[in-house]
Design a protein around this nucleic acid. Structure first.
Lengths: 210, 210
DNA sequence: GTCATGTGTAAGCACCGATTACATGGAAAT
DNA sequence: ATTTCCATGTAATCGGTGCTTACACATGAC
């Protein structure tokens, strides 16, 4: 009996192992959370030996970082797009748009949000794109609030405090959602997004001078 | 040369291995985060074989859950104590006190807060004390806001929304601190606690009817 | 056609959580 | 006082993990 599947020219070289590994790792995270991702299992699913992934990623952290880079890029794009749809002379509207878009993306992409929120799986300091995109997201929020204060549209007179508060609200709501805290109230997935956004909008108006 | 340290009667039975393991595990978490905890390493530090811990904890999760139970109990006690120091006819004051005490504990006990905030290391559903204590903490906050609304002291007319908002603010601030987000602003440990509490107090007054 | 390079395999390291069979020693029962 | 029993330890082992090293091969440049 001949070898049923020798490493012939057809499959010895995968062709796009890097992308395939990223896809497999994301799938593993979707099945059992980011902690469930294992390089070996991803390699197995792609049909490659356990050592192969390390030709493309120096470490498991590097693999997860690559996933985070892709995700953060899309995250930023969606937030920036939402901001662009608000009138330039409405900073509080831009601020609210950032928050709503942030939450919307986090809720609709829970796996990726969990990955980019997990400090221990990712090498933040080692990725220029991660730092740049995250800074850009922060800048979008900060610009809106700074401009709002300049125009006297902000209730608080402490800009830093308002920025931290806004960030905490959005981040807290997003984390409550992915950590399952909403189940402690009666909120059921479907309404979670609407509820969180209502809370956010209510507070952005509360932060504004009306 | 005789056996230098045989398992004689003096040390064959540890005496209080359970507590010793908990202490060692907490120390490991303090050194490198909750992910750094390993049952084997804790056993080694206590001077016991790798299998011994499993006589006292059915799994690593059970060990971490035991740590979380102790921590949550102290967490609740401190919050309850802070609430008791506020006048009974000042529900918004109680609400603020819960938030401040919550944040204060989280900031001063970052290791334990990280452990009790990590859903994947702990068996939440399997611990009655964890569920009870967490429910008690939630109840303290909810009671305050509910009473505030009953007395017409709440700006929002949606109680559930206000509760989620309050929770999100406190939780978001706490997580931002342990996740190192405050470093992105100029906040430096010392002032982090004061800043977070200022933000919280500012918003509790914003939430109130004045 | 030859060869260098990139990309895979195979084997193996140290560590991990967890299980099993066995050893031990203290306390309770007689 | 002796025996018995059981909680609590050890030793060995299993499958899984991240990661490294030595080697094989397929492919593109020359």
């Amino acid at each position: 009996m001949p070898d049923p599947s020798p490493p012939t020219s057809a499959n010895y070289h995968h062709g796009n192992l890097r992308e395939a590994l990223i896809k497999a790792a994301v799938q593993l995270a979707e099945e059992g959370g980011p902690e469930n991702v294992s390089v070996r299992e991803a390699a197995k699913r792609v049909g490659v030996s356990p050592g192969a992934p390390f030709r493309h990623f120096a470490s498991k952290t590097a693999l997860m970082t690559a996933i985070a880079e892709e995700a953060t890029s899309r995250f930023l794009a969606e937030i920036a797009s939402a901001v662009r749809e608000v009138a330039v002379d409405d900073p509080m509207g831009r601020f609210a748009a950032v928050g709503v878009a942030y939450l919307r993306w986090a809720i609709r992409n829970p796996t990726h949000f969990q990955i980019i929120s997990n400090r221990s799986l990712i090498d933040w300091d080692g990725s220029a794109s991660l730092q740049r995109d995250n800074a850009a997201i922060r800048a979008l929020m900060e610009e809106a609030l700074t401009e709002a204060q300049r125009r006297g549209l902000l209730a608080s007179n402490d800009l830093a405090e308002a920025q931290i508060a806004g960030r905490a609200l959005v981040y807290g709501l997003a984390r409550m959602h992915i950590d399952g805290h909403f189940a402690q109230w009666r909120v059921d997935g479907e309404t979670a997004e609407r509820t969180a956004q209502n809370v956010l909008k209510h507070f952005t108006t509360l932060m504004g001078n009306r």
